[in-house]
Simulated assay, not measured.
Amino acid sequence: MVIWIYLARPWHWIKNVFILIPLPFALAGGAKFAAGRFVVGFIGFCLITSAVYVLNDIRDVQADRCHLRKRHRPVASGAISRHGALAGFAVLLTIGLGLCLGIGSTAVSMVVLCYVGLNLVYSMGAKHCAIVDVFLLAAGYVLRVYLGCFLIDVSPSNWLLLCSAALAFFLALAKRRADLAANVDTDHRPSLRGYSVPFLDKALNLAAGVALLSYAVYTVNSDVLRPGRQLASLPFVAYGILNYLRLSKIPGATASPVDVAYRSRSMQLCGLGWLLAVLWSLK
C-alpha cells in the first residue's frame, strides 16, 4: 500500500494551493461557498494531478533510472511494473474526472479537461522544448486559479490572472534556474540545453517584477479590501518572491515548490503572514 501512495505522490498536492488563492477575496465579495461542491472538486483535481505524476513516471522510466534521486521511484526501481502503473493511472484519472465532471459545471469540466490535455502534451515530449516547457508548467498553475474561481461560481479578475500567471512563470523559471545551478544532466532534462544562466536571470527578474506590480494593482483596486489596508499583504509577497529567487541561485539548494513548501520555515511563516494580512484587510 505504501508504495502505491508513493507512486501517487500526495505530498505534491501542495501545488493545488493555487486553487485556494481566489477564495478569501471571492467570499469577501459575496460569493456563495458550497463546501461540498468545493471539496469534491478539490479532491477530484488532486487525484487527476496524481494520475499525471504516474503518467510522467511511466514515460520517464528509463531516464529516471539514471537519476540519483528519481531512480528510487516505484516504477523506475521496479517496485511497480509499467502495467501496474498504467492501471493506477487509469484508476486515478477515472475517479478524479468522475468527481470533477460530476459537479455538473461546464466551466469546471473545461478547466479539468484542459489540464489533462495540457499535461498529455507535456509528457509526450513538449517538456523537452525550452520555453515551451515553462509555458506549459505555468499554464497548469493558472488553470488551478481558474478552477478555484469556477468552483465558487465567480469570474477571475484580469489582475488576479496576470498576477497568477506571472507568479507561475516565476516558479517554473526558478526551477530551471536551480537545475542549471545544480548541473542537472541535460540527457535527463533536454530542455536545459536551450537555457542559459544570464537568460534565466533576466526572465526571472521580469516575472518577479510583473508579479509584484500586478499584485499591488490588484489589491489597490480591489473592492473587498478596507481602505488603508490594501497593501498590508504586499510585503509578504515581496519577501516570498525574493527569497525564492535567492534559493534558485544557490548551488545545492532546491527551488522545487514542493520542497520549499515543506522544508523552508521562513517561507511557511511568510505564507501564514500573507494569509493573516489578507484576512485583516478584508471588509
Rank of each mutant, 00 (worst) to 15 (best):
V197D: 14
V278R: 03
H188P: 08
C66Q: 15
G194P: 04
L275I: 14
F135I: 00
L137D: 03
I152L: 06
L247I: 05
K202H: 13
S123C: 03
V217A: 06
R189G: 01
V197L: 15
S155H: 13
D259T: 09
M124F: 07
V52Y: 10
A139Y: 01
L93F: 05
C100L: 00
W274H: 15
L92T: 11
A172S: 15
V17A: 08
A126C: 03
W274I: 10
L279R: 07
L160R: 05
L97T: 04
I19C: 04
S222I: 03
P257L: 00
L206T: 03
A261K: 03
L93T: 09
A28D: 03
R177T: 14
S155G: 11
L92R: 13
V197W: 07
R82Q: 13
T49Y: 07
H128G: 00
V75N: 10
F150M: 04
K175W: 12
S248G: 14
Y53S: 10
A261G: 04
I5S: 05
K70I: 07
F89A: 09
V237N: 00
A174V: 08
V112C: 11
I58W: 08
V40W: 09
A216W: 05
V237T: 10
R229L: 10
C129I: 03
G36F: 10
A107E: 09
G240V: 00
M267G: 02
P156H: 02
L279M: 07
L212Y: 06
A255S: 12
T94E: 12
F38M: 09
S157C: 10
G44P: 08
K175F: 12
L143E: 02
A63L: 11
L160V: 09
A34V: 04
A26E: 08
L173W: 15
A90V: 14
D179V: 15
D179Q: 13
L234E: 03
L92I: 14
G96P: 11
N205W: 08
Y146F: 15
A172P: 09
G117Y: 02
A107F: 01
A165N: 14
A207C: 04
